[in-house]
Design a protein around this nucleic acid. Structure first.
Lengths: 182, 182
DNA sequence: CCGTTGAGTGTACGATCGTACGCATGTCGA
DNA sequence: TCGACATGCGTACGATCGTACACTCAACGG
């Protein structure tokens, strides 16, 4: 069927370039032209591979959400008991907030989209759901939800604070919220 | 000094229109022209009252941050003891997450800016600092920080979840994190 | 060997953008 | 009353945008 000189990496490179650019300049300043330049593809490729800017952004953030889900999985799949789970969550919070500026910024951009448009909210629901599933292996559902919210808040505040919590403080917060009083 | 027919409301109207527009369409889609149209002022007023888009956005978000600080103050200034404080924080979380979609979206937009640019981070620091000061009247500093982060996470998750926590669950989380074990 | 096909590209168009700047207009000191 | 002057506006300019679309060209069936 005349499958000519096709380049399946093209699409991926464009998506990667899109995320890089959003991380650096913000959604407000991305454009087909800038993305094309950064990805090293001609402008025509943009409309060829993606129906428009919206589709491109949706694909890009889907890719990003997958990445975050992988980070959650990597940290939360292993622990075998409650104490290990608490340690793992502490690691996760510190990994997220001390990790690449890129991920922090992209997370915020995604939340901003999610706050307005349901399509993007589905992406955040997926990773919150996955996170909660992991946590429910060690804590009851209500606790898992509270812990999930705490993870979010700690990560954000650590990222935005000038003097972030140290590890002991993070663990203490996690321990408190996962401790049911008699 | 020939202070001609000046209109001090002009500036405020422009700022208000800017915030409305950002809430509706996102920072990515605001423009001088749209703001001018919404505020009912001529395009020329934009560059007259503000040196450029950056100054306008900074003023707009400063105004917004003041508003959020006021919400925090209104909820957190009154309580007299720890239990009242816990109730007040619960009210605050629900007020923030069930209140206007507008505030939620604007908060996210501001966080997104703050994640990238220190100028905007100062605005978020101010309201986090104020919040912490209030909380420290009833809880030790470490607890106040943890509680502050929890407020953030609960608000965000309540806003983004399809089935938000009910009040009892919110209060339970707040109680846990403010309870120091013997 | 050649016509067909479909992947991929270059370019051009109309819209919209931020911003500068010359001009109208109303106020005030003299 | 009348320049001087600050306030505020209309408009125009160059840049940049998203997107459409005619085109090239390699590969393949016959």
């Amino acid at each position: 069927m005349a499958t000519g000189h096709t380049d399946p990496q093209r699409r991926e490179r464009i998506i990667a370039a899109t995320l890089d650019l959003i991380a650096e300049e913000g959604i407000a300043h991305v454009s087909h032209r800038k993305i094309a330049a950064r990805a090293g593809v001609p402008l025509g490729s943009m409309t060829y591979h993606f129906s428009g800017m919206d589709e491109l952004l949706r694909e890009a953030f889907t890719r990003f959400a997958d990445h975050i889900v992988a980070v959650f999985d990597a940290h939360l799949a292993a622990p075998a008991d409650r104490d290990q789970a608490r340690q793992a969550v502490t690691d996760l919070v510190h990994a997220l907030s001390e990790g690449s500026q890129r991920d922090l910024v992209l997370t915020q951009e995604l939340y901003t989209l999610a706050a307005r448009r349901p399509v993007y909210r589905e992406l955040t629901h997926e990773w919150m759901g996955r996170s909660r599933t992991h946590l429910e292996k060690h804590f009851d559902p209500a606790t898992a939800r509270q812990l999930d919210a705490l993870i979010e808040g700690l990560t954000l505040h650590r990222a935005l604070d000038n003097e972030p919590h140290d590890r002991a403080l993070t663990l203490e917060a996690i321990t408190r919220i996962t401790t049911t009083r008699p």
